[in-house]
Computed example of a mutant assay.
Amino acid sequence: MTPHPLPRDPLDLVLAWAEAGHAAALATVVATWGSSPRPPGSMMAIDATGRIEGSVSGGCVEASVVDAAETVMQGGAPEVLSYGVTSEQAWAVGLACGGELDILVESVGPEGTLDPALLRHAMALRRERRPALLATRLTDMRHILVERTAGGSMAAHGGADLPDHMLPALDMAFRGGRSMRHEAPDGEAWFLHLLTPPHRLLIVGAVHIAQVLAPMAAATGFAVTVIDPRTQLATPERFPGIPLVTEWPDEALAALNVDDHTAIVTLTHDAKLDDPTLRAALDSPAFYIGALGSRKTQTSRLGRLREAGYDDGRAARIHGPVGLAIGAIGAPEIALSILAEIVAVRRDAPLGRRPGWT
């Protein structure tokens, strides 16, 4: 298959640029009101050569933000830009969606307000899928990297002290899964930027549908891994740019530490691979479990799970037939239906509960 270009993470990219010695800046949405196109925490990386990755408004204000970033990279102070439909600048750049947003622009590097060492530590926590958050005081760009421990307490990295007033807001951000603005009792504004690890899609079965589903899911922001012990199928040539695991599926899932940001789909049509995958998935906190197959296949599958000790209540977590009932024919349409159902479940949309199969 032809390789698909996959989106790159703005944080990873801005850190790489800065560490390579390039002037770089990071723009982050720190507040929104109304129907703003991008939520708080959305990012765009910019460097002095004009490279850009990410988005802060879906195209409305990016050119204006790049202009501000160029000033910041040349030694200017960090800036919080405000855009809204009543703003003269907003009309000039085309923000006509009826919303308002504030965007923080700061430089990354030894001369900037964002320390590469701090970002490096933050990215390491995210890669390890440990809950982390970057708290920024917007008046002076003081940054505190916060991790929520397994016990639920807050730990500040780098010896920083966490103000007591921030603890309830930090807990709210972690529990709600959203970046947010926080106002301290003294009126100081903080931005709590949740560095959530990307949602994952673990695809069991390096089959033709997986060749379409993997890059499609990656393009929508999922961290995708394909699992299949059949090494003649799980090859880099068939899955360019996609991580491959060739262990037995249940062993692979145990090693990958499935969390509640993980979706699991099995596409093998082979009970020897499907059944251990589904048992491991049902024992995990995965937010989505799907299995390819007809209603007859699903009935047989549920019977085997019942014999293995999984009652109907637990097995009801499995979406099968997998995907939305859109009349899909062929691998691309089936992949589309699967990804659409995963997104619907992730967003708690009605289609995630009623996919249309009768």
Rank of each mutant, 00 (worst) to 15 (best):
Leu6Ala: 09
Arg8Asn: 13
Pro10Arg: 01
Leu11Pro: 00
Leu11Tyr: 06
Ala16Trp: 09
His22Asn: 07
Ala23Val: 08
Thr28Val: 11
Thr28Asn: 10
Thr32His: 10
Gly34Val: 07
Ser35Asn: 10
Pro37Cys: 04
Arg38Gln: 08
Asp47Met: 01
Arg51Asn: 15
Ile52Leu: 15
Ser55Pro: 04
Ser55Thr: 14
Ala63His: 14
Val66Asn: 00
Asp67Met: 09
Ala69Ile: 06
Val72Lys: 13
Ser82Val: 13
Tyr83Phe: 15
Gly84Ile: 05
Glu88Tyr: 06
Glu88Arg: 08
Gln89His: 11
Gly94Glu: 07
Ala96Tyr: 02
Gly99Val: 05
Ser107Arg: 02
Pro110Ala: 11
Leu119Gln: 00
Ile144His: 03
Leu145Asp: 00
Val146Thr: 03
Ala155Arg: 15
Ala160Arg: 07
Leu162Phe: 00
Pro163Glu: 03
His165Ile: 07
Arg181Pro: 14
His182Met: 00
Trp190Pro: 09
Phe191Ile: 04
Arg200Val: 15
Val207Cys: 06
His208Leu: 15
Pro215Asp: 02
Ala217Pro: 01
Ala217Met: 09
Gly221Glu: 10
Val226Lys: 02
Thr235Gln: 11
Trp248His: 08
Asp250Ile: 14
Ala254Trp: 01
Ala254Ile: 11
Ala255Thr: 12
Thr262Tyr: 09
Thr262Asp: 08
Thr268Lys: 06
Asp274Thr: 04
Asp275Arg: 03
Thr277His: 09
Leu278Pro: 03
Asp283Ala: 13
Asp283Pro: 01
Pro285Asn: 12
Gly293Arg: 01
Lys296Asn: 14
Leu302Pro: 01
Ala315His: 08
Ala316Thr: 15
Ile318Arg: 01
Gly320Thr: 11
Ala325Arg: 00
Ile326Arg: 00
Ile338Lys: 06
Ile338His: 08
Glu341Lys: 06
Asp348Ile: 00
Gly352Asn: 05
Arg354Asp: 12
